Amino acid sequence: MNAQAAKSVGIVGFGKMGQIRAQALEEDGRATVVKIFDPLPIDAPKYPVAASAQEIINDPEIGSIFICGVNDANMPLTQAALRAGKHVFCEKPPAFNAAQVREIMEVERACGKVLMYGFNHRHHGGVRKMKDVIASGVYGRVLWMRGRYGKSVDENYLHTWRADSARAGGGILLDQGIHMLDLFLHMGDVPFDEVHAFVSSRYWNIPGIEDNVFAIMRNRDTGIEVSFHSTMTQWRHLFSLEVFLERGYLVLNGLKTSSGTYGEEQLSIAKNRSIAPAACWENEEKLHFRVDTSWRSEAEHFMDAVTLGMPVTYGTSEQALEVMSLIDRIYENDHRIGDDLHEKLQVVGE
């Protein structure tokens, strides 16, 4: 496939995420969305509508496919598109567990096409700045991290596919928590081989759909420790990522989104102080990120890979495997988890 063919894009799943991806591709300017598909009717479609996902996969004029549908379709559609010789961008989660990601990677290696997963949080301005500061070494090595990512849902949630464990694969951990876990792996640059967790569904009581996850994790070699909470019973939207290093700290509160529900994206950076009082807030440098450029940046990253042959560095299948392995560990290491989630993990892993 030449670079020109790769610029012809089909999008499978044209709900909110499919529309966001189409807009980002238009802003990048190198791709043309030539066909879209969604199982639900599309109001006033801007692009030609296919009769099925398979029509897009089989279309010889389409070189790249964006998969933006329901979680349970991610794995089979990714494999089918790769086998059809397409470059693939797929939303998270890549699959329901690490074993399934390994199956996808086998197809990826056999087909030799670009495969990238949608972990757009790595592309947020505040997150990129945090990674740059850590990589500079100015503040020394990472000691520990803490992350909270939560939202409020109402009874309408019960009537969506996200409340169906067979289609969603899990609850808040696969919905939102996966992004925070990916950021821990990104910032710490190490896996977490010791995991203790509490996974519960005590408010919405949806079988197989957790509404809270509390976890502590550690990398035995570096000693980096992590505290993590993902929730949909917080009754407000909140994002907070804290990274404490030997000689300073980085605290990102808020996340710039189109809805504005997570507040302002503000990064506080400061060197540590050895003379009390340590908490001198006026000594912090505060950076504000008022525009969400993550979607455009992610589209650019994918198009660089398919048109210029540049390597995917954010959203690789290896990174997807790392985060899904960590999710497996969280589910497995919760001693209070319901039988339904245990059975789900065992069945999909067979």
Rank of each mutant, 00 (worst) to 15 (best):
A84L: 01
L308Y: 09
A320P: 03
G137L: 02
G208W: 00
T257G: 08
G13P: 05
T160D: 05
Y139D: 14
A99P: 05
V107W: 02
M75A: 14
L250W: 10
E108I: 11
V190M: 03
K344F: 12
F14S: 02
A98F: 07
V306Y: 03
L241W: 08
M187P: 01
D38A: 10
P311D: 04
E210R: 01
A31C: 12
L185V: 10
T222A: 11
F119I: 15
G126M: 15
H237N: 13
G125R: 11
I65C: 10
I172L: 09
G248I: 06
C111T: 15
E242W: 14
P76S: 12
N58F: 10
S152W: 12
G118R: 13
Y314S: 08
A168S: 08
S317P: 03
F244P: 02
A299L: 00
Q176H: 05
V323N: 04
E264A: 13
E103P: 01
E350T: 12
I57R: 13
T233H: 05
T316N: 05
Y203H: 03
T78E: 13
A276W: 08
A22F: 06
K86V: 05
R167Q: 08
V12C: 14
M217P: 00
A320R: 12
R336N: 09
L252K: 06
H124F: 14
A215D: 01
A215W: 01
T32G: 06
Q266I: 15
L341P: 01
A22M: 08
T160M: 06
H121Y: 12
D304E: 13
D164E: 04
A84V: 04
E265P: 02
K256I: 04
Y139W: 09
K271D: 02
T316R: 09
R109G: 09
L241V: 09
K113G: 12
I209Y: 01
E27C: 02
G13S: 11
A305H: 08
D292I: 04
F289G: 05
E322I: 02
H335L: 12
Q346N: 11
Q79C: 12
I178R: 14
N74C: 12
K129P: 03
R329N: 10
G315T: 08
V251E: 14
Q346A: 14
G315I: 08
G69V: 04
D211E: 00
A215C: 03
V199T: 05
S274D: 14
P41N: 11
A6D: 04
Y314T: 04
K35V: 01
K86L: 09
E108M: 05
